[in-house]
């Protein structure tokens, strides 16, 4: 296949992949970040202990996480149609992506916030902070480097999931590799779109590492 024909396909695929990844990540964080905070602060011995709530929330998150994405995609068709207007297509697939990713992100955020030294939280309490002030001004800001690192991993995972969009009539580099590449036995498209995916993942990982270091003031 000529390069001038391959290039527009790749550009369109990359644009679709970035579109799906970006929106899905944004909304997943909007849900996952507060849930991750809740998972940490409601633990026994933390600033807002609520052990029963914590157990139930943890169980619900594990339940959602244990359903494979491809099955979730099919299960959610009716709900996706109701929420997004249609069940298939590049835009519609953002909804199942969010449902699949936000529990994962909640656990990711939980892990990051868990690293914060309990002494710092106690110091904030001893200064007369409200719980909301501790979350907003201590817990989250102190965890920023780790949260960025986690975000790079989460976004990479969401990007990998977008490759399954072809199963629901979506676009993107993954769909390009499968429908135009694998199914039509066009090896150039298969390898070129895979390579583009690899480059995207590298870009996210490298900038994640850079930003993590940039924002970390612990050892400077």
């Amino acid at each position: 296949m000529a390069f001038d024909k391959l290039w527009p396909l790749l550009l369109q695929g990359a644009a679709d992949t970035v579109y799906m990844t970006l929106w899905a990540s944004l909304f997943s964080y909007a849900l996952g970040l507060p849930l991750g905070v809740l998972l940490v602060v409601t633990r026994r011995g933390h600033i807002l202990p609520a052990p029963t709530f914590n157990t139930v929330l943890g169980w619900a998150i594990n339940f959602l996480r244990s359903i494979p994405f491809i099955i979730l995609l099919a299960m959610l068709f009716p709900i996706t149609r109701a929420v997004m207007g249609r069940a298939i297509g590049t835009r519609a697939i953002i909804f199942p992506l969010i449902v699949s990713a936000f529990p994962y992100i909640a656990r990711m955020v939980e892990g990051s916030l868990d690293e914060i030294d309990h002494g710092v939280l106690e110091a904030a309490q001893s200064m007369g902070s409200t719980n909301w002030q501790i979350i907003r001004k201590v817990l989250l800001p102190e965890a920023v480097p780790s949260l960025i690192n986690g975000a790079a991993i989460s976004v990479t995972t969401i990007l990998a999931y977008t490759a399954m969009a072809s199963a629901a009539g979506g676009g993107g580099l993954g769909a390009l590799a499968i429908t135009k590449g694998y199914q039509q036995q066009n090896m150039e498209i298969l390898y070129a779109s895979s390579l583009a995916l690899v480059l995207l993942v590298q870009l996210i990982t490298v900038s994640g590492t850079r930003f993590t270091k940039w924002f970390d003031h612990r050892k400077k």
């Binding site: 110091a123 001893s126 007369g128 902070s129 800001p141 480097p145 970390d216």
Partner: peptide, 21 residues
């Protein structure tokens, strides 16, 4: 309690400063 804690400050063995600020 929060108002009282502002009158009764505390320092710690491990300092407990905000490392990112």
């Amino acid at each position: 309690l929060r108002a009282m804690r502002r009158r009764m400050a505390m320092i710690f063995q491990q300092f407990n400063l905000l490392s990112q600020k």
